[in-house]
């Protein structure tokens, strides 16, 4: 069989990487290309039939413990989700009740009334609920402790 400059293109045509219509037409009249095309199509058919017999459903079970979070991971995700939902609900509730909110997200009425967190602002002499602890760090305000600089 004489050489042909198109034979090497047949592989790409059979694989769908090149348009194959013109090449197949050429192969019908070119012995070398017809021969190569027969082999290429035979190989393709054999490998396709072989592939069709595979069964791999069981394999995911071996992969899943390594790629998906376990029960603890799922629990953590669920807890984060619940916490986020609660925060959203609380924020939404405050908005619905009409409490003024400053740009920094603080309750403006409380800030205006209490002023900055200093010893004077929370002195027991002013009759407020806050008091200086014995250890001298921060203030007790009811059940809260506020730290000062």
């Amino acid at each position: 069989m004489s050489r042909c400059g198109k034979t090497h293109l047949l592989d790409a045509a059979v694989q769908g990487e090149l348009p194959d219509e013109a090449l197949r037409e050429h192969a019908a009249h070119c012995p070398r290309c017809r021969h190569e095309l027969q082999w290429l199509e035979t190989e393709r058919r054999l490998f396709r039939e072989r592939a069709a017999r595979d069964e791999v459903q069981h394999l995911w079970k071996g992969v899943v413990p390594r790629v998906e979070p376990g029960p603890r991971g799922r629990l953590n995700r669920a807890l984060v989700g619940v916490a986020a939902t609660l925060l959203l609900l609380l924020g939404g509730g405050r908005l619905l009740l009409g409490a003024p909110v400053s740009s920094a997200g603080l309750d403006a009425s409380i800030v205006a009334e209490a002023g900055p967190v200093t010893e004077g602002a929370f002195s027991p002499e002013r009759g407020e609920l806050c008091s200086r602890p014995v250890e001298g760090v921060g203030f007790h305000c009811g059940y809260l402790t506020l730290a000062s600089r």
Binding site: M1, H35, Q38, W39, E41, T42, R45, L46, E49, R50
Partner: peptide, 17 residues
Amino acid sequence: VLPAPDPERTLLDRELE
């Protein structure tokens, strides 16, 4: 150059596999 395969006999049976 190898001869071409016979298209009638390229069905993949167990032996050919």
